[in-house]
């Protein structure tokens, strides 16, 4: 195989698009926050005008996603491969998919209100990616030269996106009947109470969160199997308890527990919502701490 030609200039253009997307996401984030404030206002006239603001915010978010997607695509073109071979690329591609899936899932009316959360999360990921994880484009090392990189990683990112939306809904669900929020006179509690008025009722939140977790779990199961198949090709064994394999297993097991909790008397509702948050925390841990500080075969952060 001849070494591919890396286009460093195009990689810089890609970075500019990513920065532009961050700027636009910042605007849409502020608009969403402002919208929630309007939607929960005591004045009816303010409330009524809020849906126009919400629609405008979605257009801004969509525009940001367009810039974001362009940045991701250019990164891939500049390196002649899929743009998710190191942590920086995984972050920009992953957050793009999260936004994209969220925009698609807007057909489900009840999840529109977590826009600020999803938007804020994507912004945070991009901020970390550009400041902490940034690396120059590189060609793929031989172990990553495989179509399994496309399959395994895409599905892992998709699963993460679904778990992310589910976690946002679980947070809203838990805030709903946290006694401090429901009864305290502290201004923060009052503010949260007001914000929560914009959310669907608890039963609906619980069910939506469950459904997103279900899709996430199916995708994660697939990630696990695809990873084992790839490991057999690249590392001559399908499973070897490498740190990354361990954490993929832990996450899978936590969410299997979550699904059980939903069917166990006394465990559905609050406890299973907590489990879903524990699972999502494990995903973030797996991506950040495990990638950066743990030893193992999956050393692809690209950082020294």
């Amino acid at each position: 195989m001849k070494p591919v030609l890396l286009d460093v200039n195009l990689a810089s253009v890609s970075l500019i698009f990513v920065y532009a997307a961050m700027a636009v996401y910042t605007i849409s984030f502020l608009m969403f926050v402002f919208h929630i404030a309007q939607a929960t206002s005591d004045k009816k006239s303010v409330r009524d005008s809020s849906s126009r603001l919400q629609r405008a915010s979605f257009f801004v978010l969509g525009f940001g996603a367009l810039l974001h997607g362009t940045g991701v695509t250019l990164r891939g073109i500049s390196a002649h491969r899929v743009p998710w071979a190191n942590m920086y690329e995984f972050s920009i591609s992953g957050s793009f998919l999260i936004v994209l899936i969220f925009l698609t899932a807007l057909a489900v009316k009840e999840i529109r209100v977590i826009a600020a959360f999803v938007n804020g999360f994507a912004l945070l990921v991009l901020g970390t990616a550009t400041t902490t994880f940034y690396v120059q484009i590189k060609t793929l090392m031989p172990a990553l030269q495989s179509y399994w990189l496309v399959i395994h990683v895409t599905v892992a990112v998709l699963a993460t996106a679904f778990f992310n939306i589910a976690a946002a809904l679980a947070v809203a669900y838990l805030l709903r009947d946290w006694p401090w929020v429901t009864s305290s006179k502290s201004p923060i509690a009052v503010l949260i109470r007001r914000l929560l008025k914009a959310f669907p009722d608890s039963a609906k939140l619980e069910r939506l969160s469950y459904r997103f977790n279900v899709v996430g779990f199916i995708l994660w199961s697939f990630t696990l199997i695809a990873g084992a198949i790839w490991a057999e090709r690249a590392w001559h064994r399908y499973w070897g308890w490498d740190t990354k394999e361990v954490w993929t297993f832990i996450i899978w097991t936590i969410f299997a527990g979550y699904l059980h909790a939903n069917a166990t008397r006394g465990w559905s509702g609050r406890r299973s919502a907590w489990l879903s948050l524990v699972g999502f925390a494990a995903i973030l841990f797996n991506f950040t701490i495990v990638n950066l500080f743990f030893k193992g075969l999956h050393v692809y952060s690209g950082l020294k």
Binding site: W241, V246, F249, I250, T253, I254, A256, G257, H260, A261, A263, T264, R265, G266, W267, L275
Partner: peptide, 18 residues
């Protein structure tokens, strides 16, 4: 169900030290 749930979570926790 409770035992299955408990054992699943325990298994996840027990995998961490490795």
């Amino acid at each position: 169900m409770r035992t299955a749930l408990f054992l699943l979570l325990l298994l996840a926790a027990a995998a961490v030290p490795g």
